[in-house]
Design a protein around this nucleic acid. Sequence first.
RNA 1: GGUCUCGUAGUAUAACGGUUAGUACAUCGGGUUUUCAUCCCGACAACGCGGGUUCGACUCCCGCCGAGAUCACCA
Length: 479
Amino acid sequence: METITRFAPSPTGYIHIGNVRSAIYPYLLARQNKGKLILRIEDTDRARYVEGATELIMDTLEWLGINWNEGPIVGGPNGPYFQSERKDIYHAWARKLIESGRAYADPTSPEKLDEYRKECTAKKVPFLYRNYRPENLPEWKPGIPLRFKTEPKEYNWHDEVMGDMHTGPEVLDDIILIKKDGYPTYNFAHIIDDHEMGVTHLMRGAEYLSSTPNYLALYEALNIDHPKIITLPHILAPDGRKKLGKRDGAKSVTEYREDGILAETMFNYLACLGWNDGTEQEIYTKDELIKNFSTDRIQTSGARYDETKLLWMNGQWIRKIFDEQGVDALYERTVNFWPENAKDATDEYKQKVLSIIYDRLKTLSDLREMTAYFFSDPTVDVDMLIGNKFLKKLSESELESLLKTSIAKLSALQTWDANNLQQTLNVLLEETGKKPAELFSLIRIAISFAPFSPALHLTLDVLGRETSLARLNAAASAI
RNA sequence: GGUCUCGUAGUAUAACGGUUAGUACAUCGGGUUUUCAUCCCGACAACGCGGGUUCGACUCCCGCCGAGAUCACCA
């Protein structure tokens, strides 16, 4: 049987890192089995609906490389893929339930419901609406919610991650199927949709675990089979132990993207948070994940989200892309991350800068801080020179003459390239009798006035003869 | 409160009855002609507690403790 999975977000805002995984895993499973991934928009809550959220979600998925086979834009045989456009379908199924006596219109007011609830809380007994079913039930019509008439019993089921599950009748209740505004609840809609769309594997977060028995009861009353149930453990907030949510400051995927986290990193990190293939591999391409993914190795316990490791992994990915795909591939991803003063620089020059700085980047946005001096002359800061921990021991006149010696030597260079620069710097070391720490720090700071920079000969090479010498002269005359 | 789930170093994890409990991030120390990184080497650091079962338990069973999820006309 073809594997059909789905990602079914509700358009209430951005996708944060706590819930991208419920898109990644279904995607991996679908691709691994040459199946289909369906994107379905669960927009039945009109109050929480956010304009543009669907586009934002699709944009995020696209960035991550999660493409769907059926859903908005691409269409498909099982549409519409917006729940708000499927009302008739839900109502048709609802009428079947009414006919079989498994659903009823519930005239109870929200106030009355509240009262019941408080009563139960006071008595310290669990609130179950089925104990309060009204006597004279009206016809179901718009304006009145429709409830499921449950038949309390035990349920046993298998969860691909959690294993064999069991619950007693006390967890079953008369859940609302259709709200008074005519829209279905998630509880009802997702069951109908998954069935009609042929979903074979249902992957969702652990927060749905406790309502699963109610869903099982619904499948039964509807006389339909349920997909394989795969419960994903929660991603926990970095500090607390709670499920990561927007309230805990869970950032949107878009935010990470803007901070210079690569899509590869995001995908890799999240896929491996709560899953591993049993080997010691840490860096996975999407294809490797598709190949190696298996639901039976998904963790059962929640995993804390660790941004430090994400940053480490991003550094790994930056280097991996550079090493395996070349500077062009990495450069393509950096276009939005250069400092303001790099605006007029050529692509060729920026690529040169990138190729000597890339292994220092944790995020692409580090470029802004780390490369400014490549694009315009830094402000001369004499204190930075004389206060440097290696240069402190030298007098100012010594520094000045050392700089002048260096300038003379470097100016004499026939061909200004990395190799020759390296050789010349070595000669300078011998001739001046200075330690590398002293001579190189001096030159490095004089040309960059930055806390750090790439290897000296490479930096000089990229800056070029004219700029390098001009900056050295400026520094020398400022001392 | 009911129900369900979870519990290996600070973090993510490996182990599926027998290992000096492995790996990675983080931290600390060292190395590679300056810095910051990369890279390499090293160090620190864990089986929640208590009972069983067993020749032998991180691994199986029970209890306890701790943590989380859920009990909406939200998804």
